[in-house]
Design a binder for these strands. Structure first.
Lengths: 226, 226
DNA sequence: TAAATTTGTTAACATTTGCTTAACAAAGAC
DNA sequence: GTCTTTGTTAAGCAAATGTTAACAAATTTA
């Protein structure tokens, strides 16, 4: 997954540390969100569903351990990696942290290079746990499980036929699918529908995507291309 | 569980350490019992069935490891958490090697704050095992044990089928569950019910939740999404 | 145990939605 | 210019879902 698609939520009550981490991680291209206590963290996490949360333990309002437990109870954050940030000598909190389902801990003081390599190591995991039915091409994301298409960070839902047709085209960007191919793969061999049916569906998809991307190759078929 | 209902048994042959821990834990409201060797410990444990035992290893009469093994063989202490107390330079691998069923270890010297947070972490297992089935997503909290759903701080109770259906949908927010999936996972493979049954249940759930959140993907199924 | 209440299922009907079509317009190809 | 292919639109249709009430089954209460 590309860094720009990875969301990292940084949680600490010390603005300096937040800023420091933000600066270093943004340099790597990650999408960064900030929270200054546990309460803010769980709200932002629920909203953004980050891939990774770096969570300070000692915080006002709601400490990191409690915040971690709450996040772990949110099924939407099932695949989110949570790692604690610990001061040098509060080594016991590490263990307490693992009890509430944290994946790792990072100890202060933070060194940029260590931070980055640690985070990269953690993020390697998400490729495994991520939704298999999710295909991403450019600024377009197609989720067969949720039946949604995210286009320019806008979530669109399509009726079944439109969805099947669109995901067929997207499955091989650039490839031209003939009408026959589309027919058999979206409708099946046994069902016979009229000539204009495909056109109408294509039109509706174009309408929702804001046109462009689906191109007509006259006499041949259609292709998806950005 | 409230601290005053939690029994902690402290076992050490050094009165100073006992007193120190007792002082700090009583301050937190826990019910404290003291023993100065392994023999006393197993007797007291059998009598009181504490939630947590903190057990020094080096003790006269009966050492901590033996005491732990004996307590572990007492089925009445099945849910008791046992943690060792170790001196700083004792070899931890030695302790780990003795597979006597301890849950954790705490090392001396004991710092009050560390002790407290560690114990709280351990005790969360008691609460956790009781209420692990509590899932929160957005402003919705679902308790599989009580069969209740708290939505916008309003507690709703659902009949079994409705509840099973709702918690299935919530288990993977955003995922579309087909009617077949719902059928097999809520009703089972062997039971066959009519077409409209699912719809009716969906309707009732929507009624209680005040609609929205459960979305229909026509021709595919239903999904929970906020 | 009977009565009352709650829960689950069904059937009949209403409604919505998506799919397809037909008719025509526009665009390329020849 | 004619022919073929594709685009557009609105309307009709069919299928899927929503709704309601009635009844059956299971629980609870008396």
């Amino acid at each position: 997954m590309n860094p720009e698609h990875i969301k990292i939520l940084l949680v600490d009550d010390e603005p300096d540390i937040l800023e420091f981490m933000e600066y270093n991680l943004k340099k790597e291209g990650y999408q960064i969100f900030l929270a200054k206590n546990g309460q803010e963290a769980i709200e932002l996490a629920a909203k953004e569903q980050p891939n990774l949360v770096i969570l300070d333990i000692m915080m006002p309002v709601l400490d990191g351990i409690e915040a971690c437990r709450i996040m772990r109870n949110n099924p939407e954050l099932k695949n989110t990696i949570i790692t604690f940030l610990t001061a040098r000598n509060e080594d016991y909190s590490q263990i307490a942290g693992f009890d509430v389902g944290a994946d790792d801990y990072i100890s202060k003081p933070i060194k940029p290079r260590v931070l980055i390599s640690r985070i990269k190591a953690l993020l390697r995991r998400i490729n495994g746990s991520v939704n298999e039915d999710l295909v991403r091409i450019g600024n377009l994301e197609i989720d067969r499980e949720k039946y949604t298409v995210t286009y320019n960070s806008q979530v669109l839902t399509f009726p079944r036929k439109e969805f099947e047709l669109l995901s067929l085209l997207i499955s091989k960007p650039g490839k031209v699918f003939t009408r026959d191919e589309i027919m058999t793969r979206v409708w099946g061999d046994d069902i016979i529908v009229g000539d204009r049916t495909i056109d109408v569906h294509i039109r509706k998809i174009r309408e929702k995507l804001g046109d462009e991307s689906i191109k007509t190759i006259k006499g041949v078929g259609y292709k998806f291309d950005t």
